[in-house]
Design a protein around this nucleic acid. Sequence first.
DNA 1: GTCTATAATCAGATAGAC
DNA 2: GTCTATCTGATTATAGAC
Lengths: 217, 217
Amino acid sequence: MAIASLPSKTGQIRKENEILILAAAEQEFADRGFDGAVMGRIAKRAGLARANIYYYFNSREQLYWRLLKNIVAKWNESFPDINREDDPANILGAYIKAKVKFSLQNPAASKIFAGEILRGAPIIGEYLEDLYGNWLRGRVDVIEAWIQAGKMDRVDPHHLIFMIWSTTQHYADFDFQVKAALGKDKYTKEDFHKITSTLTHIILKGCGIKPLEDAAL
Amino acid sequence: MAIASLPSKTGQIRKENEILILAAAEQEFADRGFDGAVMGRIAKRAGLARANIYYYFNSREQLYWRLLKNIVAKWNESFPDINREDDPANILGAYIKAKVKFSLQNPAASKIFAGEILRGAPIIGEYLEDLYGNWLRGRVDVIEAWIQAGKMDRVDPHHLIFMIWSTTQHYADFDFQVKAALGKDKYTKEDFHKITSTLTHIILKGCGIKPLEDAAL
DNA sequence: GTCTATAATCAGATAGAC
DNA sequence: GTCTATCTGATTATAGAC
């Protein structure tokens, strides 16, 4: 093998193997949950020896924790900030679309997060409360301002947000059930559009928000 | 101890202990998932010796399976049949209300089911496909008939049903997150009404269904 | 029906040679 | 950086006395 093809920078192997391991772990934790996931399968999926995983991560829990933080970070960067001058149809439509897209493109991430919350967030609990407290308060305030300004019906902002979360994440977390019901084994581009348009129609109209022209979608 | 106070009928002890064990197991499986649940804690919660659990159930998996079947049965009996002559507002409103009620009253059951689906339904898979196939087809047909009759907007029936499932079950499955966001440690009667009325408002209006008078709710 | 061993297995984590 | 061998602890399930 030519020297030129070898990783040249220090820590290159480390970086590459961490990525392999994280990808393998993401699948394993999504498929089995924290308690069902075993290091042996993670190693196998990553193509490394089991003991070697411990050269990169101190423990199974540390590996899980790293994944959870990555997921939350990825989530945050996917969903931009909003403010009260923005148009509700615009903002909520874009948010629904981004969430559906995230679910269909990152089902494993969504499942890991769902499993963690389902068990009462034993690992990520505090971290989340700090992080989401502000985020949520900001959005609730904007929605309340929209209501005050007569831009939409008087619906409880928290429950509206929960509705968007639950309906969009459902397509990742419960994809087994959804796919069984639809009689398909994976989502298509058409499914994405159908899901997005149905959710957007019902939620926006249900909140008394006038939709934008089709061009804006 | 007086003889009269002892269980008189054969199998009485068995019946009582099975109930104790199932209740304990329901909590344990809801809190920890199938892989995280351990027989030791189930026994402790039930107030029995660990080995004694095996006198009543052959294995952890059998116990889990019994619970899942109970949950599905309970679910079915909670939600009555519908047909195309019925009024959409009436039927969907009642269904949403019943689902929210079920979630708030039986969070453990909902969580066990959610955990099973999240993992790809490894245990209950086939059983479900048989059971839900017909159920779902029936509802989809009715909703399509309502659309044909001009009683509601042309929204995809499958996605409408998923929306009702996801939004209502969210309050059980992700109660940790919801309660943290709302700043409370349990749901009140007021929460129940707020949730039900918000979901009903958005979903019915979003589908272009005229609500009934308040008296009917 | 209950409960104290105990067998058998499995998986996390580490030691230490290469 | 990699990998074999090993230690340790936990847990399922059973045997068999009471």
